[in-house]
C-alpha cells in the first residue's frame, strides 16, 4: 500500500459567493487551502470558515454521505462535498459552486424545494385501493427477495439533488419532473405492496413526465449512491408504454399474513426468551 503523505499542498478554492441581501448576482472568491491526502471538500470548506472567512454559508449535516444535504457543483460536476476527496479531483484549482438548476438561497446553498414539491406530487408512498387496510392494518405484507430486488436499488436515494443538477432536460425546462422524483415513482410502482401505479401514470406519462428524458445518462453518472436514476426512468417508460397498449403483465400483488403472533411456528424453533424490561 502506498504511504499516506502528511505534507499539505496548497489548493486554490474558487468558491461561489452570493448574499441575497446585497448581491445582484453570484461571484467567485478564491481561498488558498492547505490540503492533506484524504481531505474532503467539506473539510476544505470548514478550513475556510474557521480560518479565512466566517461568512461562508453551505448546507451539510451527516458528513458521511447519508443525509443528502451537501450536494455541490465540484469542478463542474455534481457530487457530495463530504464524500469527494479534494486531491481526487483537483491538483491546483477547485471550483465549488451551488448545485445548478436550483435557485440559490445564499453562497453554496441551493433551494431544493422545487425537487421536494415534485417528489411529493408523485405520491412516494405505498398506495392501496382499500385505504382502510393501510389505516387499520390487520397484518403484514409478504414480499419475496426477488420482488424486493426489483426496486431495492431505487430506495437508496438520499434526495441530494445531484441528478437534478446534472440533467440536461432540467437545465432547459424547469417543469420537467426530473430524475429523482421519477425514480421514486418507479420505486413505488415496482413495489408489489403498492397499487398506485395507474394513479402515478397520470402524472409520469404527461408532457412534463418521464418522456422528457432522452437518456443522456448524466443522472446515473452523477448519483453518489449508485441509484441509477436513468435505469429507473427507462423501466418506468417501458411500463407506461405497456400500460398504454394494455400489454402489461399482471404482477401478483402481495398476500397478507396474519397479524403478529398469529402465524404458525415452525417446529424445532426455541421459544423466545422472557422479556427483561417492563
Amino acid at each position: 500500500m502506498p504511504g499516506i503523505s502528511n505534507a499539505a499542498r496548497l489548493i486554490t478554492f474558487h468558491v461561489t459567493r452570493y448574499n441575497p441581501e446585497t448581491d445582484g448576482a453570484p461571484y467567485l472568491k478564491t481561498y488558498a487551502v492547505p490540503v492533506r491526502e484524504g481531505m474532503t471538500v467539506l473539510e476544505g470548506l470548514h478550513y475556510i470558515k474557521d480560518n479565512l472567512d466566517s461568512t461562508l454559508a453551505w448546507r451539510y449535516s451527516c458528513r458521511m454521505g447519508i443525509c443528502g444535504s451537501c450536494g455541490m457543483f465540484l469542478n463542474g460536476r455534481p457530487g457530495l462535498a463530504c464524500n469527494t476527496q479534494i486531491l481526487h479531483i483537483a491538483d491546483a484549482n477547485l471550483t465549488v459552486a451551488p448545485l445548478p438548476n436550483f435557485e440559490i438561497i445564499r453562497d453554496l446553498v441551493p433551494d431544493l424545494w422545487t425537487m421536494f414539491d415534485k417528489h411529493r406530487s408523485i405520491k412516494p408512498y405505498i398506495l392501496r385501493i382499500n385505504e382502510a387496510e393501510i389505516n387499520d392494518p390487520a397484518g403484514e405484507f409478504y414480499q419475496s427477495p426477488q420482488q424486493l430486488e426489483s426496486y431495492l436499488q431505487f430506495t437508496y436515494c438520499i434526495k441530494c439533488g445531484c441528478c437534478m443538477a446534472a440533467c440536461p432536460t432540467l437545465a432547459t425546462d424547469a417543469r420537467y419532473l426530473g430524475p429523482m422524483p421519477l425514480t421514486a415513482a418507479q420505486r413505488y410502482n415496482a413495489d408489489t405492496r403498492d397499487e398506485g401505479r395507474r394513479e402515478r401514470n397520470a402524472l409520469t406519462g404527461t408532457s412534463t413526465g418521464v418522456f422528457r428524458c432522452h437518456y443522456a445518462g448524466e443522472c446515473s453518472r452523477a448519483c453518489p449512491k449508485g441509484v441509477d436514476p436513468a435505469r429507473a426512468l427507462q423501466l418506468l417508460k417501458r411500463r407506461l408504454v405497456l400500460d398504454y397498449l394494455h400489454l402489461a403483465r399482471r404482477i401478483k400483488r402481495c398476500e397478507k399474513l396474519h397479524g403478529p403472533g398469529q402465524g404458525k411456528l415452525l417446529p424445532d424453533i426455541a421459544a423466545a426468551p422472557k422479556g427483561t424490561v417492563g
Binding site: 441575497p20 448576482a25 451551488p98 445548478p100 438548476n101 435557485e103 432536460t169 432540467l170 437545465a171 432547459t172
Partner: peptide, 12 residues
Amino acid sequence: NRYDNRLGIWGW
C-alpha cells in the same frame, strides 16, 4: 433576492 441558477442552453 433569489438567484435562478438554471443552466439553460449551456447546461444542455
